[in-house]
Simulated assay, not measured.
Amino acid sequence: MASHALTAPVADAPAPSPKADPVPPVAAKAVPQPRYLFGPVIDFLCLGGSSLLLFPLVYALGDSANVAGVAVTMLLVAHFINHPHFAASYQIFYRGFAQKAFTPALGRAMQARYLFAGLIAPVALVLFFLWGAGTSNSRMLGYAANVMGLAVGWHYVKQGYGMLMVDAALKRLYLKDPAKKIILANCYMTWFASWLGLNAAASRWELWGLAYYSFAVPTPLVTAATAAAGMTALAAAWVLASEWRRMGSLPWNGVIAFGVSLYAWLLFVTVNPVWGLMVPALHSLQYLVVVTRFQLNYERDQLTNPDYKKTSLVRRIFGGNPLPHLAFFFVVAAIVGWLGFWGMPTILDGLVPYDSIATTGTLFLFVFWIFINVHHYFLDNVMWRRENPETGKYLFG
Rank of each mutant, 00 (worst) to 15 (best):
L164T: 04
L164I: 01
L164C: 00
M165Y: 05
V166L: 07
A168D: 08
A169R: 05
L170S: 00
L170A: 00
K171C: 09
K171Q: 14
R172T: 03
R172A: 10
L173W: 01
L173A: 06
L173R: 05
L173S: 02
Y174I: 09
Y174T: 03
Y174V: 04
L175Y: 11
K176N: 14
K176Q: 11
D177I: 08
D177M: 05
D177E: 13
D177W: 03
A179Y: 11
K180T: 03
K180H: 03
K180Y: 00
I182P: 12
I182G: 09
I183H: 00
L184Q: 05
L184A: 06
A185V: 10
C187R: 00
C187I: 13
M189I: 12
T190W: 09
W191E: 06
F192G: 04
F192I: 09
F192K: 01
A193T: 02
S194H: 08
S194M: 10
S194D: 10
W195L: 07
L196T: 07
L196V: 13
L196A: 12
L196N: 04
G197Q: 05
L198F: 13
L198P: 08
N199Y: 02
A200E: 03
A200V: 01
A200N: 04
A200Q: 04
A202K: 12
S203L: 06
S203P: 08
R204P: 10
R204H: 15
R204V: 15
R204N: 15
W205F: 15
E206R: 15
L207K: 05
G209R: 02
G209P: 10
L210Q: 14
L210V: 05
A211N: 09
Y212T: 07
Y212A: 13
Y213V: 15
F215K: 02
F215L: 15
